[in-house]
Simulated scan of single mutants.
Amino acid sequence: MNIKTTLLSSVILVALTACGGSDNNDSPTPPQSAKFSLGVSDAPVSGLQEVNVVFNSITLKQANGADNITFETRKADDETKPEMVNLLDYTGDDIFSLLDDEDVPAGEYSWLRADIINGDENDLTMTSHVVYEDGSIAPLVVKRKGNDGIGEIQLDGFTLNQTDNDFVLEFDLKKSLVDPQSSNEIFLKPRGVRLENLAESEDIEGTVSDALIANCETDNIALAAEDGSFGHAVYLYSSDIAEPLDNYEVTENETPVDAPLATADVVFDSDDNQYEFELAFITPGDYQLAYTCAAHIDDAEQRDEAFTLYQVKPVTVTAGDDLDVTFTISQ
């Protein structure tokens, strides 16, 4: 046996192994991938036939400083045109899909931004707009804009896991739609939009008794609209708020802690012959849920001193289960 040859071969083998190990250590670890889907839904508002929002693109900002990820949102039957969605067609837990199973890196994200093509009086059919019950049309405008004039709805902080990630943009139109009176435009405010993970949210559904509705209207007759009607709705609040109030704002992008987290209209279901409501995409936790017949006087920007909640009750949303709540006359 040639000991010198054997030793030399061993030295060469160790050296080659060391070089290979160094290359492997220097190679960057590829990011784990995730699937990302995004839909839109809304909690409706009275007085409108349509709320048409034109989505131009969706951008995701990675928390690690990597390049932003942008997806253009285009109509399925015409990829040259941005996607227009009538939010009133997708209420409660109904969802319109904007993005479906897109491949993105897993991990933390700083924000998601929806770029909206603002309403233009010269081209209302192709830009964001609302249609009133009398058929008249007004431009719908997001006041926060980029340098290109495109409206921006930016929502902070979320995580994408190494699996399917289904999210929804929930538009609470009672909180987000503002008629400035001094303009022929309707403003869409981002503070009325929530980004929710479907895997981490549940629905609150329920009924309001005829008797409770009648009592509320009788006790608040001074608040009736000119035609004698009332605005029936439920409002969701944090559990620790001592005095829940109506919708109002302190700053353009801030929702006060004592204002509702979410709202939903109470509507009459002729099939079930009862008044019903649904709050969709609610994160599990403790809350207060309130019924009011004064939603019609609730201005999204200003405190309404006459606004009143008729019945308030504590509720708990549990992961994996929708919650059923009944508002009725106390026994």
Rank of each mutant, 00 (worst) to 15 (best):
Y235S: 14
Y237L: 08
P244D: 09
I213M: 09
N220T: 15
C216N: 02
A225I: 06
S239Y: 08
I213A: 06
D219R: 12
E249L: 03
S229G: 08
L236M: 10
H232I: 00
Y248S: 02
A222M: 07
V234F: 01
L236S: 04
V234Y: 01
A211K: 02
D219F: 04
A233T: 03
I241V: 15
N215R: 09
D246Y: 05
Y237A: 11
D210T: 04
E217T: 01
G231A: 01
T251N: 10
I241H: 10
E226T: 13
A224E: 13
S238N: 13
T207L: 02
A211C: 01
H232P: 00
V208H: 01
H232V: 00
C216V: 01
C216I: 01
E217Q: 14
Y248K: 06
A225Y: 07
T207D: 11
A233L: 10
Y235G: 05
L236A: 06
N247I: 04
G228S: 10
L212K: 00
D240L: 01
N220H: 13
D219A: 14
E226G: 13
D210G: 00
L245D: 08
P244L: 12
E249T: 05
E243N: 14
T207P: 03
I241L: 11
I241C: 09
D240K: 03
V250P: 00
E243M: 04
G228M: 07
A225F: 03
E249Y: 00
A242M: 14
S239D: 15
Y235I: 05
A214K: 10
T207Q: 07
A242S: 15
H232S: 06
N215S: 12
G231D: 01
A233V: 08
V208P: 02
S239N: 12
V208K: 05
Y235Q: 07
T218E: 09
T251W: 06
I213P: 04
E243H: 07
A242I: 14
Y248V: 08
T218V: 01
D219E: 15
A233G: 10
S229W: 03
S229V: 00
A222H: 12
I221W: 11
G228W: 09
V250M: 11
V234L: 04
I213K: 07
Y235W: 04
V208S: 05
I241M: 08
I241T: 14
S238L: 13
A211Y: 02
A224N: 09
A242D: 15
S229N: 02
S209D: 09
T251D: 12
G228L: 12
A225T: 14
L223H: 13
L212C: 02
S238M: 06
E243V: 04
I213L: 13
S229H: 03
V250T: 14
G231F: 00
S209V: 12
A222F: 07
E217V: 00
P244Y: 06
V234K: 00
A233Q: 14
N215K: 12
Y248M: 08
T207R: 06
N220C: 07
I213N: 05
V234P: 01
Y248H: 14
S238W: 03
D240H: 04
S209I: 10
A214S: 14
G231R: 01
A222I: 15
F230S: 06
S238R: 12
D246K: 05
